[in-house]
Amino acid sequence: MKATTLAAVAAAVFSIGAAAAAEPYKAPRTADGQPDLQGIWEVKTSPDKDLEKAKGLIVDPKNGKIPYLPAALAQKKENSKNSEAQDPLNKCFMPGVPRINLLSHPFQIFQTPNQISIAYEYIHNFRNIYLKREKHMEQIDFWQGDSLGHWDGDTLVVDVADLNDQTWFDKAGDYHSDQLHVEERYTRTGPDTMLYEATITDPKTFSAPWKIRETLHRDTKPNARILEYECQYLADEAAKAKK
């Protein structure tokens, strides 16, 4: 009886999986025929607290641990000791990639034939993802790097390089060097959901590439828009002291 039930459940699960695999969601198209990723998107969890503790976020390696080289692991532990004071975000610096997409702040995607732009509510950041450029800028680092995009079927693949070594991945002190290279993948999975994946490579800090996966949710409220979030260093301390 038990075995029969299990088999039936297994068969049902398999058929659901097979059906899902057979018919992936087909994203609507922009006027020039690109899969349409436009809209206001946001993570619904707070993976930024600690990537390793965010359930199911790190999908590779299987153990969910960031594959630090020994010296880098020691540095991460050092960072985590006084992370609130050391986190570059708390000093109003730009978050870098992929952290910018994992903050609990919405961002809006706009598409043109040559370029995809993302406007972020979080301290008015923006990113330009160039679809027709083939080479990254050379011998320069930026907080948000340089993003080159191309389509792999319905997935937008973004190669991010030229990132500096000043940002952290999360509040827990996870960090990287200026050898950081990020490959992002954006795939619409439904009318209001998008899969966000990022493969992180940095031979100075990690023994192997590692990968995160998170779902972005579209803001479906009427009149949805991004607002403003400015970073005001010590503003709340000042407000508290002013009384």
Binding site: K44, T45, D48, E84, S104, H105, P106, Y122, C231
Partner: peptide, 23 residues
């Protein structure tokens, strides 16, 4: 701001969009 359903985002815990409690 740092709680499981709270404004746990950036910076340093200031969840920006302040939606209904999540998770």
């Amino acid at each position: 701001p740092g709680g499981p359903g709270g404004p746990g985002g950036a910076p340093g815990g200031g969840r920006g969009n302040g939606g209904a409690p999540k998770e």
